[in-house]
Nucleic acid binder design. Sequence first.
DNA 1: GCATACACGTGAGGC
DNA 2: TGCCTCACGTGTATG
Lengths: 220, 220
Amino acid sequence: MASTASTRQPPPTATPELSSSSGRSATEARSLKVHSEAERRRRERINGHLATLRRMMPDASQMDKATLLSSVVSQVRHLKRKAAETATQPLTPVPPEANEITVRCYTAGSDDRTTCIRATVSCDDRPGLFTGLAGAFRGLGLRTLRAELASLGGRAHHVFVLCNEDGDVGAGPRALERTVWQALAQVAFPETAFGGTSWSKRQRILDAGCSLMYSLRAEI
Amino acid sequence: MASTASTRQPPPTATPELSSSSGRSATEARSLKVHSEAERRRRERINGHLATLRRMMPDASQMDKATLLSSVVSQVRHLKRKAAETATQPLTPVPPEANEITVRCYTAGSDDRTTCIRATVSCDDRPGLFTGLAGAFRGLGLRTLRAELASLGGRAHHVFVLCNEDGDVGAGPRALERTVWQALAQVAFPETAFGGTSWSKRQRILDAGCSLMYSLRAEI
DNA sequence: GCATACACGTGAGGC
DNA sequence: TGCCTCACGTGTATG
């Protein structure tokens, strides 16, 4: 099934016996000719666009028409969703209502030497918050590779990607995560006395006093 | 041209005179029948996908097939470009090689009371740079609304959206831009003694000494 | 009448 | 061989 499709040669256009011999009047025959020619032009237009689509789709050179169109349908669906997602996500999303700090430590690159940290902070915004968070990383000897911040309606959401400057994880990734988390918590929620509240496992602590939820995720 | 296309009724499937009367053997006739039926199924598959595409495209209900396909081509092109743009833009792009600080002051919202500033900084990365820039805004009484930072290969690119905390532009937007620009320059390029170099107009200064280009843009 | 667009059945060629 | 896909010319409907 599915012959080469795009490289197929049409048979030499067997000219429909135009004149004489058949039970056709001359005008009938000519009108039939212009008709078939118009129809061929129509086919060429359609197949031209089909060929263009084939070139635009991945691995579509051997697909038959129906399969090609079906893949176009999926591709359009996929692209539409992707465009819609990224259109609302170019910057960090609208700051969520829940207060939350997440810290995840991972190794990037082919060698497992480069340790990266992804940290997010959602909290009430206030003057100096951003500076404070940035300073916290500096104090920990972490370099900021990427950062995104959105502030809206008194709420702020931050995303940071950091790396350990000396490439040394020290006491291990879990301990590093805990340290970062505590440093961020001190800046983001200074009013809350934060001890070493149960980092050992993923947990959610509902602080009834200020109606805040602090959650700590060891994985994502 | 272009009849309703999607609501067209096929003529009642004029069954090709199957048996008898024609100069066909019975097996020939039957094979011809299964052939034409297979061909119809094939057409139905293709047209089914075309109908799906028609539903997905805007205002395509009256298009003929060729026009529909041509609009699908444009749509896919458009979506691909959009997806590619936003895919590489969710974070700030790869840090450019040229050193540059841009500051633009504008009024956001329906009322012209809210003054915003968009500032970008491209420079060599170093520990504490991010903290320094964030601190510069803090020192100027500016609140950071949005921020993006990318650091790659020793280069860093920052985008900030700020607002004046007290909503007061003070000596006017141009003066504010100048102030912000100078503060950022002091952090980003401390080795360069930066005077009040010609803010008055958009300009580019090529500093031959360190092969850096500082450009200042009053508009974007 | 003319132009256009569609569905159809058929022949040809590829696995 | 049979099954599949394609291009073709035709009949027919619409404007």
